[in-house]
């Protein structure tokens, strides 16, 4: 009896928090996506009164609008592509780094981890604006790169306000979210396992692919989820660095709410994005499990 009360006391507050600030808002969004936009923005009333009495004022208009023009799906696919590219480069760069930190001396590990999370100590927007300067046409980086390209008879290239700038900055912003779960996983590996593998005839390459890599899969899954999902909804980075070509679905959603003031369409886009993200994560989990049971 007491333990049941204790359980409720512990799980109650976070559950309540999630209910009030996550479940209910999501349901409000779902509902909003089926409503009409108000005349001056916002939402039209749900109940409409006329001569026949009150009736529900709901519509599929927002979803019809989405499917009426492929440009929205195209934007969604483009966003997924950016997220995939970002996740891939984060993984490829974070893995060796996490491995290096996990295998370094205990004293140095804390310092290296501190360096990884150091960027979080300065403001997110300021860090993005810094990239605006780095990639700007007058920056030493751009000038140097274009000088080099002209020697090879190419260029000049523009970097700011391109998809390249967006993805480059997304990788920069998300990299720590890949490093940390990977490190947390790799740090726990028993070094005796690598000794055993070597003792039993595995060379360095085999030791990595047969022991370290499969054991780090939970860390990879966690890192991929932490990088991939937030990128799908991000708008600040493409807003600042993307120009017109680098726009992502997040920008459109933001625009629908704040500029076009079409809340139902913005809600519909959000819901579709959430559904798409859940489908992809679900499929990945299914594939991983299938592969796990095969091995």
């Amino acid at each position: 009896m007491n333990s049941r009360i204790a359980k409720w006391l512990i799980s109650g507050p976070p559950s309540l928090y999630l209910l009030v600030f996550f479940v209910i808002p999501t349901l409000i969004m779902v509902l909003a996506s089926f409503r009409y936009a108000g005349e001056y923005g916002g939402l039209a009333p749900i109940l409409l009164h006329d001569a026949n009495g009150a009736h529900l004022n709901l519509t599929l208009e927002s979803y019809q609008e989405y499917f009426s023009d492929f440009i929205y799906t195209w934007l969604l696919l483009k966003t997924v592509l950016y997220a995939l590219v970002t996740t891939f480069f984060c993984l490829v760069m974070a893995y060796p780094l996490a491995l290096l930190i996990a295998r370094s001396e205990k004293k140095r590990r804390d310092l290296l981890i501190l360096l990884v999370i150091l960027p979080f100590w300065s403001n997110f927007l300021i860090r993005i604006y810094a990239w605006m300067i780095i990639l700007g046409p007058q920056s030493a980086f751009t000038v140097g790169l274009n000088d080099l390209l002209s020697l090879l008879g190419m260029g000049p290239v523009r970097m700011l306000f391109t998809p390249f700038a967006v993805v480059l900055c997304l990788i920069y912003v998300q990299l720590p979210f890949m490093v940390l779960p990977l490190y947390a996983n790799l740090e726990k590996h028993d070094p005796a396992l690598l000794d055993a593998a070597q003792d039993l005839g595995a060379n360095g390459w085999q030791r990595f692919w047969k022991v370290t890599f499969p054991l780090s899969l939970p860390g990879i899954y966690a890192g991929v989820a932490l990088v991939f999902i937030p990128v799908l909804g991000i708008f600040a980075v493409p807003d600042i660095l993307g120009g017109t070509k680098g726009i992502m679905i997040g920008n459109l959603i933001k625009q629908e709410f704040l500029e076009a003031r079409d809340w139902p369409f913005g809600s519909a886009l959000s819901i579709l994005l959430t559904v798409a993200a859940m489908l992809m994560v679900g499929m990945a989990a299914l594939l991983a499990r299938r592969k796990g049971s095969d091995a």
Binding site: D195, Q198, D199, L200, G201, K210, V211
Partner: peptide, 20 residues
């Protein structure tokens, strides 16, 4: 000769069985 090429195998104290 590196460990992986020696015709010598070890039973480790912790057994070091591959958990996966």
């Amino acid at each position: 000769i590196p460990p992986e090429k020696r015709p010598i195998h070890t039973v480790f104290q912790s057994y070091a069985l591959f958990p996966h």
